[in-house]
């Protein structure tokens, strides 16, 4: 582990009883959903993690508890280190407090997660879908959402696919 990261991981352990793991020099810290806003505030204010590089989620379907990990990738420009904070969330009605008041960029990124994974961010200022049309059902990046693969047109299914294309000329 990077020497600069050791005190950070220690603080997280003491304050938020956060577990951590390491892979190829990257440190992942696990925090409970209730404490994520406090943890991010501590990291930003005390350890100068000014930049929320990425905010995304991973779906471990069919595992249900936890089904999702919400991933916060933080970068410190001053110390040139990165740390990843992960929040495990259960499968049925996943909820995490919003981080939009700590990092403004979380606003759009959380809307994306709401759209793509159906993870609700409590207290979010603008909870609308961002990428998909509003009338879409389901959340595309969940593993139980089908890819939506369509078959190529061959002789045996020529007419079936032609029916879907009402505007083909000639």
């Amino acid at each position: 582990m990077d020497k600069k990261l050791e005190p950070i991981v220690k603080t997280m352990q003491e304050k938020f009883s956060a577990a951590h793991e390491e892979f190829r020099g990257e440190v992942h810290v696990f925090v409970n959903p209730e404490q994520i806003v406090d943890a991010l505030t501590v990291l930003r204010d005390e350890y100068k993690f000014e930049l929320l590089s990425a905010l995304t989620a991973v779906d471990y379907y069919p595992q249900t508890s936890p089904r999702f990990h919400v991933v916060y990738q933080l970068t410190s420009l001053a110390n040139n280190v990165s740390v990843q904070v992960r929040v495990p969330v259960d499968g049925d009605s996943p909820k995490v407090p919003t981080a939009a008041r700590v990092y403004a960029t979380a606003n759009w990124r959380e809307r994306e997660l709401l759209d793509m994974f159906g993870i609700e961010f409590e207290g979010h200022p603008d909870p609308r879908r961002i990428l998909m049309p509003e009338e879409t059902e389901g959340h595309p990046l969940r593993k139980d959402f089908p890819l939506g693969y369509e078959e190529p047109q061959f002789t045996f299914n020529f007419e079936e696919i032609d029916l879907r294309k009402p505007y083909v000329k000639e």
């Binding site: 595309p140 959402f145 089908p146 890819l147 939506g148 369509e150 294309k165």
Partner: peptide, 11 residues
């Protein structure tokens, strides 16, 4: 070939 894209604009 997925959920988001029309498989040909002739649809």
């Amino acid at each position: 070939n997925n959920y988001a894209i029309y498989q040909g604009v002739d649809e």
